[in-house]
């Protein structure tokens, strides 16, 4: 049997069994570019390529490829490219710098426009409308809640709402601070407060305004306490005076004697 006959027989057997092994051979040829093959694979591959011209060409191309591929890594774009790129960058940088520089001036120019106030008011109204009136807005209940709070006992309700919205830690700190302040203010504040409540109650029940004579209370405290307490007390006094006046006026309008508590106890704010 000569070489040709042997080769024909091998091809015939392969054709009737597994077909062509060239696919497997080429996979190995390609794989050996990444990792070295096992000894047996190298041997099998050389056995195949010795009899397969097509795979031999393939192996030759694979061995030849790295060099031209590496040569493709860099292609000279020409001398003009550098200058063109640097020129292209310059306007970009200038544009950004100029934009940043002019931002403040543009804003001021906008502010100087006569219609700006109208436009701002219009946009503001639209934003408020979107925030509080749009059906999908999470804040749509806020105005109703605010109205409910205002119609209820205002101070207490506001305090309660605030407490509910504050973290527990902050509320505890607030309580502790309030307690400490109460301790430091001592009996003076408490006495003054009780007395003021009595006066308010009496004024409410009598339907007469709370007179400015409450100033004497503050005067009696000034000697013994510091400025901060005194100022706070004066402020509270003013507030209570205002509230008392309002209450007295309101009760006068609405016949306070009809609203008076039968037990004669004071009406708090």
């Amino acid at each position: 049997m000569n070489d040709n006959q042997r080769e024909r027989m091998v091809q015939g057997v392969l054709a009737r069994t597994i077909g062509s092994p060239c696919g497997r051979a080429r996979a190995l040829i390609s794989a050996q570019s990444d990792d070295p093959l096992e000894k047996v694979d190298t041997s099998l591959l050389s056995g195949h390529t010795a009899h397969c011209p097509s795979c031999r060409s393939f192996a030759a191309v694979m061995a030849w490829l790295p060099r031209p591929l590496v040569e493709l890594a860099e292609v000279d774009p020409g001398e003009a490219f550098t200058n063109a790129t640097l020129r292209a960058m310059l306007p970009w940088r200038q544009r950004v710098a100029r934009r940043l520089r002019n931002l403040g001036e543009e804003w001021m120019a906008l502010m100087r426009r006569p219609r700006f106030a109208w436009e701002a008011a219009y946009i503001g109204a639209a934003i408020i409308g979107l925030l509080f009136a749009a059906p999908i807005s999470p804040l749509r209940d806020v105005p109703g809640e605010a109205l409910r709070v205002a119609q209820a006992n205002p101070v207490q309700a506001l305090v309660e709402v605030s407490r509910r919205q504050l973290p527990a830690t902050v509320v505890n700190w607030g309580d502790a601070a309030w307690a400490a302040t109460g301790e430091r203010a001592g009996t003076i504040t408490r006495n003054w407060r009780d007395d003021l409540w009595d006066r308010l109650g009496r004024a409410w029940n009598a339907g007469t305004p709370l007179g400015p004579d409450t100033a004497e209370l503050g005067a009696s405290l000034r000697a013994g306490r510091g400025n901060r307490i005194r100022k706070a007390i004066d402020q509270i006094k003013k507030d209570f005076y205002g509230i008392g006046t309002e209450l007295a006026t309101a009760s006068g309008r609405n016949n306070p004697h009809n609203q008076q508590d039968s037990s004669g106890e004071r009406h708090g704010c």
């Binding site: 493709l72 890594a73 860099e74 292609v75 774009p77 550098t82 790129t85 640097l86 960058m89």
Partner: peptide, 14 residues
């Protein structure tokens, strides 16, 4: 910046 452009322009262009 110019040096960087010159050093990598061929690679970037390729």
């Amino acid at each position: 910046w110019e040096a960087l452009v010159r050093q990598y322009q061929s690679r970037v262009y390729a």
